[in-house]
């Protein structure tokens, strides 16, 4: 296998997972280069689901955690139930359930004018993985993150809050300046794990009801495609594993940098290093 042929393969299949390039997947005599290219191409989906779900989930989780910590029952109860349902059931079942629910929705469309252009929002998008599965992942990670944030809220040192009160900080200002940064700092190690396992969870999408339209799938979808065709799991899955270990390491690097920033005011010996623990996989 020459380098040139491999470059051709990358040109043909590098963006195959998002529908750019060669339409037909390779059928036989798979080269190592094809393995690496297609599985790597599928990784784009894992990145897409993971990054967007974490982004939206982060804001929602803050709100849900605050709601759960609230004294008013009509805010607390719904938040508690939301967390209970999404943390207490398998993500796999949630995917199936939401897919079936989305399929049953009536097919409708709305025109939305964005000023410069007009788009049509359609309910059938919900049955596609890019939107439907993303919504499930957002809700799921929101529940897990909210529980982490809630736990951190509860473990903010009482003295910090009392000091804020003593300085006359109240309401929004007290939340923004004292409570939220401290909560985030305390929650960060656990939240890092949540992010890692959310990326792992994105591999479930195309195995749980949501169809891989025109064979546009994620890394695991292509890995299992190769393994099924060659009946040899010893090439495709280790490549997938390698990609995911790299992904996990980059998540740890990014989150570690944020962790250092959150803890930068603390004396050196008090700054805890991130430790990865399997406490939040689904």
């Amino acid at each position: 296998m020459s380098i040139r042929a491999c470059l051709d393969t990358i040109a043909a299949y590098g963006l195959r997972s998002i529908g750019i390039g060669e339409r037909l997947l390779p059928k036989r005599d798979f080269t190592l280069c094809e393995h690496f290219t297609l599985i790597g191409s599928g990784l784009l989906w894992n990145l897409y689901f993971g990054i967007l779900a974490i982004f939206f989930g982060f804001f929602l989780a803050n709100a849900i955690a605050m709601a759960k910590a609230n004294r008013r029952w009509w805010l607390r109860k719904p938040a508690e139930w939301f967390i209970f349902v999404f943390r207490g059931s398998p993500l796999f079942i949630q995917f199936f359930l939401f897919y079936e629910a989305f399929v049953l929705l009536p097919k409708m469309g709305w025109d939305i004018n964005l000023g410069f252009t007009e788009i049509t929002v359609e309910t059938r998008w919900l049955t596609r993985a890019w939107l439907g599965a993303l919504i499930v992942l957002i809700l799921n990670t929101t529940a897990y993150s909210a529980e982490i944030f809630y736990g951190a809220l509860k473990s903010i040192p009482r003295g910090d809050i009392e000091a804020a009160d003593a300085y006359g900080l109240t309401g929004w200002k007290r939340y923004k300046r004292i409570i939220w940064p401290t909560m985030l700092r305390l929650a960060w190690p656990a939240y890092t794990n949540e992010a890692i396992f959310l990326f792992h969870a994105t591999t479930l999408v195309f195995f749980s009801g949501f169809p891989a339209w025109r064979q546009k799938g994620d890394a695991l979808y292509y890995a299992s495609y190769f393994a099924d065709k060659t009946f040899n799991p010893f090439v495709a899955y280790p490549i997938l594993a390698g990609y995911f270990i790299l992904l996990t390491l980059s998540v740890i690097t990014v989150y570690g940098a944020i962790n250092r920033r959150l803890n930068r005011h603390l004396p050196q010996e008090k700054q805890r290093r991130l430790r990865v623990r399997p406490n939040v996989i689904r």
Binding site: A227, F231, F244, L249, P278
Partner: peptide, 20 residues
């Protein structure tokens, strides 16, 4: 290794690998 890689990938891998 097991913690760095999605568990579902392990499930799919080991079922064929063990069998073979």
């Amino acid at each position: 290794v097991v913690r760095g890689v999605p568990d579902i990938a392990f499930f799919l891998f080991f079922v064929i690998a063990l069998d073979q």
